[in-house]
Amino acid sequence: MIDRRNAILGTLAVGLSVGVDAQTPPPARVGGRGPRLPDPSETIDLWPAGAPGAPATLLVEVVEDRTKGTDATDRAVHGIARPRMVVFRPAKPNGSAMLVMPGGGYVRIVVDREGYEIARWLADRGWTVFVLFYRLPGDGWAAGPDVALSDAQRAMRLIRARAGLYGIRPDRVAAMGFSAGGHVCGDLATRFAQQTYPPVDAADPLSARPDVAALIYAVQSMTLPLAHPGSRAVLLGPSPTPALEQAHSTASNVTSATPPCFLVHAEDDRSVAVDNTLAFRAAAVRAGVAVETHLFATGGHGFGMSKAVGKPAARWPTLFEEWARAHGLG
């Protein structure tokens, strides 16, 4: 367990750079449709000297506006060359932090529906939230299928290293992921200790293990027919070996060290089959990991918060909040 003193020492070692050094801005605001809530401006770049293993041609970040009519803002971003966290600070911090990993099939990252919406909701309840814009495995990074996990590990360590700056406790850092971001979150919850990058500074000896993890309609299996074909193809290539498929199926990596997990899925999900979540739950039970599962009859895929309004699935954030409080967070 990492205590508050060690977190503060880690902060000093890394450098008090939050809000001082120039950081990469958040993904741009584009278009003019739909209601517009203010975006946060505070970011934390993950890699002080640039992300390791960059492709020969530097990526160009592109933000697309997918908002329809007067619907809630719906942006997506791809071409992540500067992986970073966007910070949502609460008015009254409750001591807990959340790392949010949006989905997007490993070809894009959904900014609003699976990032900023839940971040604002949690921040209103006292959580300090960090939305992660991670590198995508199809973009030619040297780490290949581990590139998003590298960013998630680094993000967790930086949150703990800077805990004193944000008024959070290093033993109350949660992780949440949606769809392909749920695969990143599941990877983080099960392979947090695997070395996927060479250490770069004093944050890297800190633990990358989340204290709890929430997997929301998460991609899990990399073996067909259960796998989400698009995520599998981008992550592992067109013809992965059975060994590679198993190595990147998160249920295969659950151990007794996996943190307590909160699982949500809709049974009518036609993109990521609900059996992905059921397999992860079964693995958690076998390993003796505390797990809570909420299955909704309807909801489809990618409902986040705004697309669940008026449906029973809309209750999942409150269910998470209650569950997290029972585990000492929030």
Rank of each mutant, 00 (worst) to 15 (best):
G144H: 08
V173S: 01
L12W: 14
G288T: 04
P55H: 06
M176R: 01
A22P: 11
N276S: 05
L165C: 07
L9Y: 00
G69N: 11
L149E: 03
F192G: 01
T24D: 14
R36A: 10
T298K: 08
P242V: 14
G300V: 05
P27I: 11
G186S: 01
G186N: 02
D74M: 03
G144N: 12
V110T: 03
C261P: 10
V234I: 14
T67F: 04
L235I: 06
A54R: 15
F133H: 15
G237A: 11
L206I: 13
M156V: 12
G126I: 08
D74Y: 05
V219S: 04
Q153F: 02
G237N: 10
M98G: 11
V289C: 08
V77C: 06
Q153L: 07
E64C: 11
A161S: 10
D275T: 06
K311N: 09
P229D: 15
I216H: 00
G304T: 08
A283H: 06
M1N: 15
A284H: 01
V184P: 04
T43K: 02
P170M: 01
I159M: 10
V173R: 02
R66W: 06
A56N: 07
A180T: 03
A161T: 12
T70I: 01
P55W: 06
P242N: 15
G10I: 04
W141L: 14
V147A: 09
G230V: 07
V285F: 00
Y217C: 12
W323I: 13
V200Y: 07
L37I: 12
D275H: 05
Y166N: 05
A273V: 02
D151G: 02
P205N: 11
P259K: 07
C261V: 15
P38V: 13
A119V: 04
L235C: 02
Y197M: 09
A251V: 06
D71K: 12
P55G: 10
V219N: 04
R75T: 08
F303R: 04
A91G: 14
S256Q: 14
Y106N: 00
A119I: 04
R125G: 11
A247D: 14
G50Y: 02
A324Q: 14
S231I: 04
W141V: 15
V62E: 10
G328W: 14
